[in-house]
Amino acid sequence: MQKDQRLLDLAALLLKAAEPVSWREIQEQFPEDYGGTDEAAIRKFERDKADLLELGIPVRYAAGDEDLPAGYLIDRDEFYLPDLKLPPEDLALLYVAGSAALASGAFPYSRDLAHALSKLSFAARAPGASEAAAFAARRLTADAGEPRPEVAQWIEELSRAIALRKRVHLAYLGAERRERTERDVDPYGLFQKGGAWFLAGYCHLREDIRTFHVSRIEALTVNPAAPRTPDFKPRKDFSIAAYATREAWEYDVHAPVRCRVRLDPPIPAEVLASFGPRARTREEGGGAVIEVDATNQEGLLRHVLALGERAEILAPKALRERAREVLSTLARRLA
């Protein structure tokens, strides 16, 4: 029998049964599937159980007592998707957030996300507006003309590898040195910044944790050996959120240097926030002076330049001089 049919038959049997179904009975009902030697049959049944669990269907073994025989069962409460215990507005939010993520074209576990959104209509009694919003979000991005199917594919494969903790082999086009390198990476996590996705993981070539721009990955293979056995354990101190919220000037390039930046009023909230949670702000003459400790001054320079004439590097002197140099070179070229 085909495996997908066997799994559903098994689920139907256990769902319908009034009491736990013994292993012997299961064997009798599925003679060619779980017949044969006991050991092989049990292994196959255990794999099927694991597959069902991966579909969200937990099969449980009950040890039995004077009232009930020992055997397998699917507890209906444990099987059916429950109503999410959330206020209706939160449910609607979840729906909108999920749809927008799916519509962005590349999101980790995007196939799972699509299934989750479908199921949510059961768990959330989703109001019509949310479904309409989901439809519109998908529609809006369907024709946005961003033909990068490989990014979506890498993200899908990386999210699987992260979940199963499988090592990946990358061909990566480094931006700094502009050369193609091949390396093994233990994928720790994915994060999004500025609309782009990054992989963080332990790089066996550089022997340290490294970040990879997903769209600069040219080829990717997930270690095909022993798909259910993890290849690595992420470092205990690793936190994807800490990695993702690092500012460009906090990349580890040189020893920390205290830098000061002046912002002219009016300062929009997002400009203030763009210096991150570790920046110190002092109000001055309606504007503000921001102080940060930079371990990559070049990153801070670019950030400040992008703010245009509203912002100015005050210190250190060398960085201020560098800003003047960049701008005057540009100005000469444009003249």
């Binding site: 969200g56 998707l81 939010l93 957030a97 999101f107 199921k119 979940a163």
Partner: peptide, 18 residues
């Protein structure tokens, strides 16, 4: 008559989106 529970990756994808 009702879909099964969320798989961990379905729920995690929704959580990440939120």
């Amino acid at each position: 008559s009702r879909p099964p529970r969320f798989t961990e990756s379905e729920a995690a994808a929704l959580a990440a989106a939120a």
